[in-house]
Amino acid sequence: MTPILEVRDIHTFIGQFHILEGVSVSVASGGITVLLGRNGAGKTTTLRSIMGLTPPTRGSIQFEGNPIQGKSTHAIAQMGIGYVPEHRAIFKGLTVRENLILAERKTGDYARKADFIFELFPDLKRLIELPGGNLSGGQQQMLAVARALVPDNRLLLIDEPSEGLAPVIIEQLIAAIQRLADQVSVLLVEQNFRVASKLAQSYVIIEEGHSRVNGAMNELVGDQSLIQRYLGVA
């Protein structure tokens, strides 16, 4: 199966700092791939490089076979990529509805997707007229994911969705991401190894700006030494 996203050996600078020094990631069509690595390894920067927010200076990125590196962020998003950033980044002054409408790429996107979204996240329906800033952390995270589902995206980049959330909420979120993965491919960044192993079929480990290992998730789960070495978790 050809991958939906193919990142090959990208290098990214932030200011004068060389943050990514060769990262390659391949996301299979129709699956969930997780990016693993310690804090500061460069996972967020990888997602931001794909989105063109910190454009890579070297390497190539192909989405559905088309090169996207060098394009502007909005053009990359319009090709069908949804971004759910770290710390959610929902618009606190906008209502839930406005947050969702903002994500429309064609008029009517929101109306078309509303049923699916509210099925995944029933809470959002009754919060629809509240300002995003009034939502709890878990609700904000759900809104951030829902927002990425409004247009017809074929790939979602989700950065640490479980960060700072209560276990019950995390379970709901896992269920929702599993459901939506039927329809879109996902590149996930997740520090919580339990969550990652539940969701993903394949993994890529990043260390100090380099992608080191990749493979099938079920192989990694059994390989304690690899986990210990790169992630430092048991």
């Binding site: 989105m51 909005h74 618009f91 406005e98």
Partner: peptide, 13 residues
């Protein structure tokens, strides 16, 4: 939205 977070607006396409 842009007043709050320009980058995210772009990332929405």
């Amino acid at each position: 939205a842009g007043v709050e977070d320009r980058e995210m607006v772009q990332a929405l396409g």
